[in-house]
Amino acid sequence: MKYQSRKKAVIILADGTIFYGKAVGKEGTAFGEVCFNTGMTGYQEIFTDPSYFGQIMVTTNAHIGNYGVNADEVESDSVKIAGLVCKNFSYNYSRVDADGSLKDFLDENNLFAISDVDTRALVSYIRDNGAMNAVISTEVDRIEELKAKLAEVPDMKGLELSSRVSAKEPYFFGNPDATYKVAALDLGIKKNILRNLAKRDAYIKVFPYDATFEELKAWNPDGYFLSNGPGDPEPLESAIDVAKKIIAEDLPLFGICLGHQVIALSQGISTYKMHNGHRGINHPVKNLLSGKGEITSQNHGFAVNREEVENHAGVEITHVHLNDDTVAGIRIKNKNCFSVQYHPEASPGPHDASYLFDQFVEMISGKNAVNS
């Protein structure tokens, strides 16, 4: 596509700040919370991650699309971000095992994207002023109308979004003859989480976000899992109740990201919306139990209140984020329950955190590696 033929586009932030660019392909308009990811690779996984539902993604890497797409590298059945903002968009790609271009992939998923934006300036602005709602559009001559519509978009704080991405009916994943059975509550689950559990000899039954503890328990699983997902954890009253009951019966429970926050809320520990969140593939975390550092993949805009964890007699911090000392992992004392605020199933290079799935399976099998 010739540069000159592309439509002018605009990104307007909730505080009125404006950046300009050009449409990647089709004309359009999209609303959502603007946030950024610092990963140099993995754009397809990012775009299909249910945790990003309702967000306009700004990619900090200068080139997006240069290695195309591959059908095996999706985390859900469709693109989940609300829109894409990047610097240089590559219409041509070069990778042996690519099966298509990112442009065609975005068109097939009806995603509006803009490029040629000064993303360094935009990301710097978000870092200073915080993640906020925004609109991207090719209607550059209707700025005031776009601002008026943007003002009506609800804030992410208080927004329940798991219902928008969760399975409508239960389904199974893995080998029915596997040694272990895991009941997973789908708050916006990524496929690679299911792959990692199945790879460790687990057969998974995935339940909708609003399934009750009794429904999960009726399958007679050996362990329980609370998944990642989008939005604010506080409105997820049903999931919080599920976590509370699993922990009360001391059944093996593992939570990731939104699931981690739900577990904290079930113990009376609050969560809060972060200034701009953690989104990238090289976030440093320290395991306080082993003393080891981990390079992790992260994607979250909410966090668990550290002071409340430290003052809670029944909960212990197991991992901390080394950039800002936020809580990156907890465990419930004298219970078979632990959780982390990052993605051990995401392996953008390092596999530092994959041991967490092993610990979960060991906990299910009775070895109880977490609380030993």
Rank of each mutant, 00 (worst) to 15 (best):
M1Y: 07
K2C: 09
K7V: 09
K7S: 09
I12R: 01
I12G: 03
T17W: 02
F19H: 03
A23W: 00
G25W: 04
G28C: 11
T29Y: 03
V34A: 11
T38M: 03
G39C: 04
Y43K: 01
Q44E: 15
Q44R: 09
I46M: 09
F47P: 01
G65Y: 03
N66K: 12
G68E: 11
V69P: 02
N70A: 10
D72E: 15
E75L: 12
S78P: 08
G83F: 01
C86W: 01
N88A: 11
N92H: 15
Y93W: 13
A98S: 15
A98G: 11
K103G: 12
D104G: 13
F105C: 08
N110A: 14
N110P: 10
F112W: 00
A113R: 01
I114W: 00
D118Q: 10
R120H: 14
V123A: 13
V123L: 06
S124M: 06
G130C: 03
A131K: 01
A134H: 04
V135C: 09
R142E: 15
K147E: 08
D155K: 08
K157L: 12
L159A: 07
P170W: 06
G174M: 05
G174F: 00
Y180D: 05
Y180R: 05
A183Q: 08
A183V: 09
A184V: 15
L185M: 10
L185N: 11
I189H: 07
K191G: 14
R195K: 15
L197S: 03
A211K: 04
A211V: 09
T212K: 10
N220G: 13
N220I: 05
D222H: 05
N228R: 00
E237S: 14
S238G: 15
I246T: 10
F254M: 05
A264I: 05
L265M: 07
S266Q: 03
Q267R: 06
I269Q: 00
Y272R: 04
H275F: 07
G277R: 00
I281M: 04
H283E: 15
P284T: 02
N287V: 14
K292I: 08
T296F: 03
F302M: 03
V304E: 09
V304Q: 02
N305C: 12
E307H: 09
T318Y: 05
L322C: 10
D324A: 05
D325P: 08
V327W: 02
R331E: 12
R331Q: 13
K333P: 10
K335G: 07
C337Y: 03
F338N: 04
H351M: 15
D358N: 11
Q359K: 14
S365W: 00
V370P: 04
